[in-house]
Design a protein around this nucleic acid. Structure first.
Ligand SMILES: [Mn+2]
Ligand SMILES: [Mn+2]
Ligand SMILES: [Zn+2]
Ligand SMILES: [Zn+2]
Lengths: 132, 132
DNA sequence: GGACTGGTGAGAACGGTTGTCAAGTCGCCG
DNA sequence: CGGCGACTTGACAACCGTTCTCACCAGTCC
């Protein structure tokens, strides 16, 4: 039952620490391979899942159904403002939205309310780079 | 280039009209098959996609990556409060959330802000049925 | 070092969705 | 009414991200 520290787990954790953007399992896998620190794809997925379960990493799903992972600064519940183009992410705390969500649920007789709230946009740098 | 009315397209549209819940392409396909109004699965997907493109049907993706479809009453932008258990859906209009989302984006220099906001819960009927 | 046991990875399996393409049909025209 | 042609259909294969399988590997403890 003991959790072991392995080269692979350390490598995945390190790759996550190095990128402030949300990244997919496959991107992380490729990054590690390119760096000569190869880790099996299945292991990347397993490690990410464990980190998510432990609350150390956040996941979000793109509109195309791919999962993106990121080690967030805030451990508490929060949302994200993500750049569509480069993945740059701002962690957002929205007390007003939290209140709104539970009020809406209660008003319609729903219980155990959960909410997904994500914001997507184009960051200032990407606008400067791509024109427009 | 003309769009034709076919038995299949009418059947999919009718199945959507009959259910106020969000339903998956496969559920709709099965419903039609059971009713003896069989339509190929690929055609169900194609028809749903066309309806979504035309703004006649709303889609949302479950946490498991499945797309759910529903003909909403409101044509204007809105969100949903969905029962995890039976799919019952309440259309929600949240002006405060809209304002919050664009304000957040602007505050961090992001443009072309889009947002996904969905609420999940257990409706009163499902709570009564399953106890708790 | 040796045993115990959790971890690894190549490849198969999965599940929802989309692509392929020969066969079928709606709509129109004569 | 036929007939024609472009649009549509559907069985099945291909896709794609993710998970499962299982024989082999390697931390950990003694
Ligand atoms: Mn929240
Ligand atoms: Mn909105
Ligand atoms: Zn950017
Ligand atoms: Zn319900």
């Amino acid at each position: 039952m003991t959790v072991r520290m392995t080269r692979q787990r350390a490598a995945v954790a390190e790759a996550l620490d190095e990128s402030p953007e949300f990244r997919s399992a496959q991107q992380l896998h490729e990054t590690l391979r390119a760096r000569g620190d190869a880790v099996g794809l299945a292991t990347v997925y397993r490690t990410l899942q464990a980190l998510v379960d432990g609350g150390e990493v956040d996941v979000l799903r793109t509109g195309e159904g791919e999962s993106l992972y990121r080690r967030c600064v805030t451990r508490a519940h929060h949302h994200h403002l993500v750049c569509r183009s480069c993945g740059r992410t701002v962690e957002i705390d929205g007390p007003s939205v939290e209140a709104w969500a539970s009020a809406m649920g209660a008003a319609h007789g729903f219980a155990d309310i959960e909410h997904t709230v994500e914001l997507w946009g184009t960051c200032a740098d990407c606008r400067a780079a791509h024109g427009a």
